[in-house]
């Protein structure tokens, strides 16, 4: 008798735990032949709000963790990803990628985490300055994390897109709530499992699945979200997000619906520059 496969339940990732959506709702993800791939959590506004609470709670600890440690944890994510590469490839193929494209996407995602791991203690040197003020003061400017960042991952890329959004946000000391691709959500739950075993404190990364048009207004208008990254080619979505972001002067970064390239400027997008003055004298 053939063995019955054990199917995976796809849940959310909030505060270092894998809860089911409080809404109790699911949406069906179908494969190319119409076969059911998974019942994906249809995350709600309440789930999002819970995720923001978890992100805020973890923010200070993560920001104050030293840069060396942040780099090691990102590298750890890459290590674990490498070991589970096949699982991600399977999921990408099930969602329509060719085997070659799936393989390429997974390898790129692994290398992306390695790349950003290295930035953890270097981007500050690139974007800091000691300012030669014309008065007897010592004056310097350094980047600090913006705070809690919400992100809408690229729709067209299930793993690389999601990874390219998460890495620059967290390597700079922010915590984040990420909405995964609606049509390619499988890797998001698996990536959450990788992240969860990487020593990243719970709540620093929270991953939701759900309906993009339903959650977008809530992501944009939440008063305790400091910045938002939207990967989208849709002008209507861009306008909606920028308009809703106004109430707490949220920083909105727009990016096309594609993975972000590897760049320290994506880290800078979620940093604030702080300038400190002190008199010089005896």
């Amino acid at each position: 008798m053939s063995r019955l496969t054990v199917n995976k339940t796809y849940k959310l990732y909030i505060g270092g735990k894998f809860p089911r959506t409080e809404s109790g709702r699911y949406y069906e993800l179908k494969g190319k032949k119409g076969n059911l791939l998974a019942n994906v959590s249809h995350g709600s506004r309440k789930d999002f709000r819970n995720a923001v609470v978890a992100a805020r709670k973890s923010f200070r600890g993560w920001w104050e963790a030293n840069a060396y440690l942040r780099g090691q944890i990102l590298y750890r994510i890459a290590e674990i990803l490498e070991g589970r590469a096949e699982q991600f490839e399977d999921e990408l193929r099930a969602q329509g990628s060719t085997p070659a494209a799936a393989r390429k996407e997974v390898l790129k995602a692994i290398d992306l985490f390695v790349h950003y791991a290295g930035w953890s203690d270097k981007f500050q040197a690139l974007f800091s300055s000691v300012n030669p003020v014309a008065s007897p003061h010592f004056n310097f400017s350094v980047p600090e994390p913006t705070g809690v960042v919400a992100a809408v991952a690229p729709e067209r890329s299930g793993l690389l897109g999601l990874s390219s959004v998460i890495a620059p946000i967290i390597v700079g000391g922010n915590s984040g709530v990420v909405l995964a691709s609606q049509s390619r959500p499988l890797c998001s739950v698996t990536l959450a499992e990788v992240i969860n075993s990487s020593d990243l404190p719970g709540g620093v990364v929270n991953i939701l699945t759900g309906m993009r048009d339903e959650l977008l207004p809530h992501l944009s208008s939440h008063m305790d979200v400091n910045a938002l990254l939207l990967c989208s080619d849709d002008p209507a979505e861009q306008k909606l997000v920028q308009g809703e972001a106004v109430e707490n002067v949220k920083r909105v970064r727009l990016h096309p619906d594609a993975p972000l390239d590897e760049s320290p400027y994506h880290i800078l997008d979620f940093q604030e520059i702080k300038t400190t003055w002190h008199p010089v004298g005896v």
Binding site: S129, N131, V133, A134, S135, H137, N139, I273, W277
Partner: peptide
């Protein structure tokens, strides 16, 4: 204190 070389915001 203010100075042109010193970022403000």
């Amino acid at each position: 204190k203010f100075d042109p070389s010193s970022p403000f915001g």
